[in-house]
Write a protein that binds this DNA or RNA. Structure first.
Length: 197
DNA sequence: AACCCTCGCAACCGCCAGTAC
DNA sequence: GGTACTGGCGGTTGCGAGGGT
């Protein structure tokens, strides 16, 4: 049988040093990604393979876009989250240069709070029935999420500033863990999902 | 100046599906 | 066919920075 990916004894943990980063970068430039189990030893790193993978994927990869999220990126995250839920890797896959960890962190630290302040429940993207912040939200919510009859856009009316897009092409190619909504499985409160059939 | 609190982010942990043995 | 390992994912934690008192 194979050996475990790493023995926890004798491995560094916590923040990466510049030297460790450089060793990892140099090794991957020479040998490419993959085989994370054997990489630490081969690269001279006292790290778990998993830790190396994470460091590379989330921080060292040359194609990573760093810095603030643009408004359209934020918009897209909100929309994708409304469709996919907390499937950060899928969401990040649609934002070039962004990692799932970054998207997840940005959601939890910025967007989530922003939606709450707008009176929107970040879990289901519906307006709160009763909001301490927006006392009038209860009356307006019944209009918003039950009467979204705009079939050209797949999101609730409170996301109206956003551009339209479709997931259809990827679903056709590979994606069976994101089954297309059907009249059987769709949420009746969200009629717009029918667009993806 | 010192202390406390909050926030953002990097990194870890545990779980799971796929797959090698 | 069963077991163990790998790679990937989402949830969570912990630390450092910055702001407030």
């Amino acid at each position: 049988m194979r050996k475990p990916c790493c023995d926890k004894e004798g491995t560094n943990k916590g923040a990466w040093s510049k030297q460790e980063d450089q060793k990892l970068i140099d090794y991957i430039h020479l040998h490419g990604e993959g085989c994370w189990r054997s990489l630490p030893k081969a690269a001279g790193l006292h790290r778990c393979g998993k830790s190396c993978r994470l460091r590379w994927i989330n921080y060292l990869r040359p194609d990573i876009k760093r810095g603030n999220f643009a408004p359209d990126e934020e918009d897209l995250i909100i929309k994708l989250h409304a469709l996919l839920g907390n499937r950060w890797s899928l969401i990040a896959g649609r934002l070039p240069g962004r990692t799932d960890n970054e998207v997840k962190n940005y959601w939890n630290s910025h967007i989530r709070r922003k939606l709450i302040n707008m009176g929107i429940d970040p879990n289901n993207h519906k307006l709160y029935q009763t909001s301490p912040l927006l006392p009038h939200a209860a009356s307006s919510s019944s209009h918003h999420h039950h009467l979204n009859l705009d079939l050209t856009i797949a999101f609730p009316a409170h996301y109206s500033s956003s551009p339209t897009f479709t997931l259809a092409e990827e679903d056709d190619n590979n994606n069976n863990d994101n089954p297309k909504p059907t009249s059987e499985n769709m949420d009746e409160s969200n009629p717009t999902l029918l667009l993806f059939q």
